[in-house]
Amino acid sequence: MSPASAPSPRDRSIVRLEHVAKTFSNGTVALADLNLDVAEGEFLSLLGPSGCGKSTALRIIAGLGEPTSGAVAWPKAMYDASGKPEAEIGFVFQEPTLMPWATVFHNVWLPLRLKGVSKAAARTRVAEALEMVGLEKFSAAYPRELSGGMKMRVSIARALVTRPRLLLMDEPFAALDEITRQKLNDDLLKLYKQFGFTVLFVTHSVFESVHLSSRIVVMAARPGRVIDDIAIEAPYPRDRAFRTSPLYAEYCRRVSDSLVAAIGATDHL
């Protein structure tokens, strides 16, 4: 993450991975020469077989673990005194990752609290975030009193409470049932349209990625790299009509073929 990276002419990008490689201490090459350009306002999905480095890439963008080589550039971010970019990101993990001892309110307050915002000052923003995900009535509940889908909503509210410009989501709905997942996908798209943040979304599901994304990047494993880049040119809002259209089916086939190629490319290595 060097602040020295020159502003690029492609100033639409919010974050850019430049020749990023990551080798873990046990010798696993998780990423090799990964280039990824996330444009402001797009909904970008990372799709790829298990172990291809999707989570690793997301964590590097979030600043959790440095790349072994290469750089992460934030063309639009302000740099703070220590030279770190103020990335304005929200992160949604695969598990809800809530503090079990804290109420929903306290969990959503956390990102603000860590920045020194008092409880009173945070109240309206927390309430807004909970309203976005339809949980305004549950602010006094403890995580154990919520269903899996509701916990995930709290996790999304927590990621949105800081009003991030970039939302990183690592297979957020993978553990949920089909109906809940569909509902949360629709809600996520609604929030995406309403607030205009950028989303970087990791998934295993071809259908989910085509439904949600404006662009899909397909990765192959060992070493993790990009092998395909597919723009999904269909207007939002994407409702049921889109999910039953020939265009949708066409895109699914296209992405699916690419994923098969990605798995094939992995098997040869």
């Binding site: 964590r59 979030a62 600043g63 959790l64 990101i89 992160f91 993990f93 598990e95 990752t97 503090m99 956390l110 990102p111 860590l114 920045k115 800081t162």
Partner: peptide
Amino acid sequence: NLLNLFELYGA
């Protein structure tokens, strides 16, 4: 994961 979250938000 919670430790990561705290790190992410600069705790």
